[in-house]
Design a protein around this nucleic acid. Sequence first.
DNA 1: GTGGTCTAGACCACC
DNA 2: GTGGTCTAGACCACG
Lengths: 133, 133, 133, 133
Amino acid sequence: MILQIDPSSGLAIYDQIVRQLKFAVASGKLRPGELVPSVRELSKQLAINPNTVARAYRQLQDEEVLESVRGLGMQMAAGSAKRCRADRKKLISARLKEVFREARQSGLLRSDISSLIEKELKSFPETVEADTP
Amino acid sequence: MILQIDPSSGLAIYDQIVRQLKFAVASGKLRPGELVPSVRELSKQLAINPNTVARAYRQLQDEEVLESVRGLGMQMAAGSAKRCRADRKKLISARLKEVFREARQSGLLRSDISSLIEKELKSFPETVEADTP
Amino acid sequence: MILQIDPSSGLAIYDQIVRQLKFAVASGKLRPGELVPSVRELSKQLAINPNTVARAYRQLQDEEVLESVRGLGMQMAAGSAKRCRADRKKLISARLKEVFREARQSGLLRSDISSLIEKELKSFPETVEADTP
Amino acid sequence: MILQIDPSSGLAIYDQIVRQLKFAVASGKLRPGELVPSVRELSKQLAINPNTVARAYRQLQDEEVLESVRGLGMQMAAGSAKRCRADRKKLISARLKEVFREARQSGLLRSDISSLIEKELKSFPETVEADTP
DNA sequence: GTGGTCTAGACCACC
DNA sequence: GTGGTCTAGACCACG
């Protein structure tokens, strides 16, 4: 359970935590029922303020991805994997749509965008190499 | 010189002005040496705060797309067209890279990403038709 | 726009703000499109921390009751009145259900509860006397 | 002496123990002078933390519902039955008052409240049947 | 130990 | 001026 936080990525830190936890459960790295690191623990790991972690956890709770167990901690909710698997495509689609809107607004043609995509896509590995050793 | 501002688009208003002016010069609608409306004039046209226009102009000045001409106003800088054309591809490439990184991080396969791209790309017009009313 | 906060009511302060704003728009005291007091302003009025107000506003935004207007403030969202009118009965129903569950768990008969209700209900005015002078 | 604990009911576990013991003595299932299970014993039965049981017992001791008997354990205090019977109505009354206050504050008419009450009240059994398995 | 709430004060982008 | 984010540290209830 190691999260990668990039404070200069433009995305809020709490949002990066939210996304990565959703992705983790969507891809099976985290299983429903599994406890996530405590607020204090994770904040120490990431060297950020506990409030920031708490905010991310609260949002995940609102979205029924996490549920708190009194005195124990927070665990992945029952149906969270399925829900997050559906979500992640939506999240990525939304980001793509933004980029395309931006591209169009700046006057690029569809052929320009396509060639940019092709170039960027090549530099990525074919398959995902998760933490499944 | 009519700009389309959408205050509820999520993008900052000043940023929309910046983009559209850059696009205009990149695509030849505005030519180097041509005067842009005054801050006061444009803010009245768009019904927005003059500070917002001023900020957009200031940023364009910093990027040497606009230059002020004493007593006259602001005009598109020489060479701005070429520079803007180069810039926009760099910007979009960077954005794409971010999205792909996130997609991969979320456990999507390259084939998943490709199909998302295809879907989103379809919903965009083949050519750019900026301000068709 | 005066809210009544009771720090010793058991309910979190941010939650009291959320409820009262929902109720205000539901009962017509606050109209869609109307600006609510700024975070700083309200926090000063209520003598509480701005973060606490911000948290309430953020939750209302998540529930699409409030929407933020860049640089201006927060305003009641378009359909908020209708949505909140539906909500308030749900909120009260939920509270009633809790009380009844508690009553039953402590061994009261339905007749006991009914007589308690009758007693409490009597001490309340027949109609609501809002701020419509 | 079997208590029903629901850890996901929102109510604190220690509070559920307190309520159910009070109810038991109020309704005559437990008699003054009768011994309750030891902390260790009950915590094992309910598969919960001994601290939680201890806390419940401590609170009941503070309210003079339980009393410790040196070398024997804890027993229901003399007079506890009468006191608990009186208490529970007071508690429920106070809760009702809160809910009514909030309902009125939300702009509901007395008739609205009455109909909500009627609806919720119907879904409750006529008599109390605590532990029907 | 856990999460939940609140306070205090900082910095940022935007209008 | 506005909201948004983050940090720091406090107190509480619960297990």
